[in-house]
Design a protein around this nucleic acid. Structure first.
Length: 470
RNA sequence: GCUCCCAUCGUCUAGUGGUCCAGGACGUCGCCCUCUCACGGCGAAAACAGGGGUUCGAGUCCCCUUGGGAGUACCA
């Protein structure tokens, strides 16, 4: 039988990194085995679900490149089918109506707690309860009281739950809408899901779901419960607790492949290897190799990985993502050197695309003022002569090539008997506005002759104007 | 409280009873390279939570303790 996996988020927020990793594992498992990956939207909680969230999740999946083969399937479109299954369970005696009120249930739980018992439904309506005036019943699944449920989890190994620990869960609310544990079971069954890969916060739901499946006469799928991701503070990373949206990483200048690579290494590894292309992940990933322990999200390592991808990916690819950041800064790439060349010049020194864009603004637009510290250290009267020398040389330079520019800078240093730094650094501040830029010849070459000359003139004027005051 | 899960450097991890005085990576700290910032190179500090077993031998198997996490909803 061909493998089918699914990612089933509830649309109550954006796609966060924890969900993204679960989706990635599920996606990888399907891709590796030539199976199919299904996206299902678990929106039965109408109160908390929203179309904005659905769009945010879809957007995140698209940006990461986790394309799905089927879906998105919305549970709210399947209510008829759930009702049908609930009817079936009712008819077979595997479910029953419960007329207990919320208040009664709360009291019951409170009493159990004080007795140090596990709070659970006591089965009061289990053996046929009379309808009560003014109470719309819920429907409960009749869980077996004897025996045990054995889950052979692909990452956890064997987990055994005694049925006597489980209670009769609600499968339909008093308004008739189905609840999570019922819809999951029905959907996974109908969609032919062979491997349920999800967060380990669902481990405790698994035996209940298996029991429902059995009542329906179905064979349970394989389960793989992957550990949670913890935040920097060691607490669970979730929507409720400091989870970070996948799309935030796009805004912050990360490449999707870098995030994917970081996520796949959280809880999974392959020897000493750190870098995996998506194809390599597909080839090497095995759900059985996933760790059991929760892991902590480490932004520093993600940053390093991002830098690796910026340095080693095709410059065209990086440039494509850089253009998004340039756009946010209001810069038109047509106003300066080709983005690809900027990428090649900047990639070693910027860890994010945001940083790269910011540090490259001066190629496209005039800067307002010099970096104060850099100007104080470099734009001094002593720099006047070398700058003037170079201004003349650059005007006369037959070809605006890196080699020629480099020669000018070097010859100026020799002529004035200065170290290269004493000449290059003032020049750098003059053209870039600050003390940091790619190698000086590359910087000038990309900037172009006209801009270079104008900026040297500006710097000379600035030095002369500030000569007295410093 | 109860049920379930987890436990190797600060962090991600390798390790499937001997080859581990525990390997790699991020980060940190030195040194080298250098026109700035980086990249790169070399090196250092840094861990088997604790206690009992089993075994000729345990990071690796078992038990307990401790510490984390999840669930315990007419949420998913």
């Amino acid at each position: 039988m061909s493998i089918r996996t699914r990612f089933a988020p509830s649309p109550t927020g954006y796609l966060h990194v924890g969900g993204a990793r679960t989706a990635l594992f599920s996606w990888l498992h399907a891709r590796k085995h030539g199976g199919r990956f299904i996206l299902r939207i678990e929106d039965t909680d109408i109160e908390r679900s929203s179309v904005e969230s659905v769009n945010a999740i879809l957007e995140g999946m698209t940006w990461l490149g986790l394309e799905y083969d089927e879906g998105p399937i919305y549970q709210t479109n399947r209510f008829d089918r759930y009702r049908e299954v609930i009817r079936q369970l009712l008819d077979s005696g595997d479910a029953y109506r419960c007329y207990c009120t919320r208040e009664e249930l709360e009291q019951m739980r409170a009493a159990q707690m004080t007795r140090k018992e596990k709070p659970r439904y006591n089965g009061r309506c289990r053996t046929g309860a009379e309808p009560r005036e003014g109470v719309q019943p819920v429907i409960r699944f009749r869980n077996p009281v004897e025996g045990a449920v054995v889950v052979d989890d692909l990452v956890r190994g064997r987990i055994v739950f005694n049925n006597c620990e489980l209670d009769d869960l609600i499968i339909a609310r008093s308004d008739g809408t189905p609840t999570y544990n019922l819809t999951v079971v029905v959907d996974d069954l109908d969609m032919g899901v062979t491997h349920v890969i999800r967060g380990d916060d669902h481990i405790n739901n698994t035996p209940r779901q298996i029991n429902i499946l059995k009542a329906l006469g179905a064979e349970p799928p394989h389960y793989a419960h992957v550990p949670m991701i913890l935040g920097d503070d060691g607490k669970r990373l979730s929507k409720r607790h400091g989870a970070v949206s996948v799309m935030q990483y796009r805004e912050d200048g990360y490449l999707p492949e870098a995030l994917l690579n970081y996520l796949v290494r959280l809880g999974w590894s392959h020897g000493d290897r750190e870098l995996f292309s998506v194809d390599e992940m597909i080839a090497l990933f095995d759900i059985r190799d996933v760790n059991k322990a929760a892991s902590t999200f480490n932004s520093e390592k993600l940053l390093w990985l991002n830098h690796q991808y910026i340095m080693n990916s095709e410059p065209e690819h990086v440039a494509h993502h850089l253009s998004y950041q340039m756009g946010k800064l209001g810069i038109d790439p047509a106003d300066g050197p080709p983005l690809v060349e900027v990428v090649k010049a900047q990639r070693e020194r910027t860890k994010t695309l945001v940083e790269m864009a910011r540090n490259s603004i001066f190629f496209y637009r005039e800067f307002d003022s010099y970096d104060e510290k850099a100007a104080r250290r470099n734009l001094k009267p002593q720099a006047l002569e070398p700058l003037s020398d170079m201004l003349g040389s650059f005007r006369a330079l037959p070809s605006w090539s890196r080699e020629a520019i480099h020669r000018v800078v070097q010859e100026t240093a020799e002529l004035r008997q200065l170290k290269l730094g004493k000449v290059a650094q003032p020049l750098r501040v003059a053209v870039a506005g600050g003390g940091v830029s790619p190698p000086i010849d590359t910087t000038l070459q990309l900037l172009g002759r006209e801009r270079t000359i104008r900026r040297i003139e500006r710097a000379i004027a600035w030095i002369e104007a500030h000569a007295g005051s410093s």
